[in-house]
Lab assay of single mutants.
Amino acid sequence: MDETGKELVLALYDYQEKSPREVTMKKGDILTLLNSTNKDWWKVEVKITVNGKTYERQGFVPAAYVKKL
């Protein structure tokens, strides 16, 4: 869990989004888990830094590609 009590997951593999509802992740990324009720796709939040500014983006990743921490 992070400092706000949200559950975290670890990306076990790289994943490139294939639709606007998904998010890209790299092996080793730590993501915030938002919803894991679907056994195949989990909703996560990723933080992306571009030119020194951090953005948060929500989307789905394959559940088999992440592990709860």
Rank of each mutant, 00 (worst) to 15 (best):
M1E: 14
M1A: 14
M1H: 15
M1C: 14
M1W: 09
D2Y: 03
D2V: 10
D2M: 08
D2C: 14
D2F: 04
D2P: 12
D2T: 10
E3M: 08
E3G: 11
E3Q: 10
T4P: 13
T4M: 14
T4Q: 14
G5D: 12
G5V: 14
G5A: 15
K6I: 12
K6D: 09
K6H: 14
E7F: 10
E7R: 12
E7K: 08
E7T: 13
L8T: 08
L8Q: 10
L8G: 03
L8I: 08
L8P: 05
V9N: 00
V9R: 01
V9I: 07
V9G: 10
V9P: 00
V9H: 02
L10Y: 09
L10S: 04
L10Q: 11
L10N: 02
A11T: 04
A11R: 02
A11W: 02
A11N: 00
L12M: 08
L12R: 04
L12Q: 03
Y13E: 10
Y13A: 11
Y13K: 14
D14W: 03
D14T: 04
D14M: 02
D14K: 02
D14C: 05
Y15Q: 00
Q16E: 13
Q16W: 12
E17F: 06
E17A: 15
E17L: 06
K18W: 04
K18E: 06
K18Y: 04
S19R: 08
S19W: 05
S19K: 07
S19T: 11
S19F: 05
P20T: 10
P20Q: 09
P20K: 10
P20S: 12
P20I: 10
R21P: 04
R21D: 13
R21V: 11
R21T: 12
R21I: 13
E22M: 05
E22S: 05
E22K: 04
V23S: 01
V23T: 04
V23F: 06
V23P: 00
V23L: 11
T24R: 05
T24E: 04
T24Q: 04
M25D: 00
M25S: 01
M25I: 15
M25R: 00
M25E: 00
M25Q: 01
K26L: 07
K26H: 09
K26F: 12
K26T: 08
K27D: 02
K27E: 06
K27V: 06
K27A: 13
G28P: 00
D29V: 03
D29G: 03
D29P: 00
I30V: 13
I30A: 02
I30N: 02
I30L: 08
L31H: 02
L31M: 14
L31E: 00
L31C: 07
L31Y: 08
T32L: 15
T32H: 09
T32S: 09
T32G: 08
T32C: 08
T32A: 12
L33M: 03
L33F: 03
L34D: 01
N35H: 06
N35G: 06
N35F: 05
N35K: 06
S36Q: 09
S36T: 11
S36F: 06
S36C: 09
T37V: 09
T37E: 15
N38T: 06
N38P: 04
N38S: 12
N38L: 09
N38H: 11
K39R: 11
K39W: 07
K39L: 09
D40I: 14
D40H: 14
D40L: 12
D40R: 12
W41M: 05
W41F: 06
W41P: 00
W42F: 07
W42A: 04
W42R: 01
W42Q: 00
W42H: 02
W42I: 04
K43W: 14
K43G: 05
V44H: 00
V44C: 04
E45A: 14
E45K: 10
V46K: 15
V46L: 12
V46P: 02
V46Y: 07
V46R: 14
K47G: 08
K47Q: 12
K47I: 13
K47N: 10
K47Y: 10
K47D: 08
K47C: 10
I48Q: 08
I48Y: 12
I48R: 07
I48H: 08
I48V: 14
T49N: 11
V50D: 09
V50G: 07
V50H: 09
V50T: 10
N51F: 09
N51L: 11
N51I: 06
G52V: 03
G52S: 07
G52F: 07
G52E: 07
G52P: 02
K53H: 15
K53Y: 15
K53A: 13
T54A: 13
T54M: 12
T54E: 12
T54W: 11
T54F: 11
Y55F: 14
Y55E: 12
Y55L: 14
E56V: 15
E56W: 15
E56M: 15
E56F: 15
E56K: 15
R57C: 06
R57M: 06
R57V: 07
R57L: 06
R57N: 05
R57G: 04
Q58H: 09
Q58D: 07
Q58S: 11
G59W: 03
G59F: 05
F60W: 15
F60T: 03
F60P: 00
F60V: 07
F60G: 01
V61G: 00
V61M: 01
V61P: 00
V61A: 03
P62Q: 02
P62E: 02
P62L: 03
A64F: 08
A64C: 13
A64I: 11
A64R: 14
Y65H: 06
Y65C: 09
Y65A: 12
V66W: 01
V66Q: 01
V66C: 11
V66M: 05
K67H: 09
K67M: 11
K67G: 07
K67R: 15
K67N: 05
K68Q: 08
K68G: 05
K68V: 12
K68P: 09
K68Y: 07
L69K: 04
L69P: 02
L69S: 03
L69Q: 05
L69R: 03
